[in-house]
């Protein structure tokens, strides 16, 4: 039955192929992006949550 459903949709094979291509190109895009990131920016970005840490004495933690 499932085979029948599959065959009845014209060009169904194309869907998984499209999905794979979209995903792979997207992934390569992201990896290139990340590799190109410069260290200074990364360091600035990753310290953003800690920038305003002026309350540590309130909870008594260092």
């Amino acid at each position: 039955m499932i085979r029948n459903v599959l065959e009845s949709i014209s060009g169904i094979e194309i869907y998984p192929i499209i999905s794979l291509l979209i995903f792979i190109s997207f992934f390569i895009f992201i990896i290139t992006w990340v590799v190109k990131l410069d260290k200074k920016t990364v360091s600035k970005l990753e310290n953003m949550p800690l920038d305003d840490d002026d309350q540590s004495q309130i909870s008594g933690r260092k």
């Binding site: 990753e46 310290n47 949550p49 800690l50 840490d53 540590s56 933690r61 260092k62």
Partner: peptide, 9 residues
Amino acid sequence: LPKAANRPV
């Protein structure tokens, strides 16, 4: 988590 650990991700 960075806040609680007091270090960046």
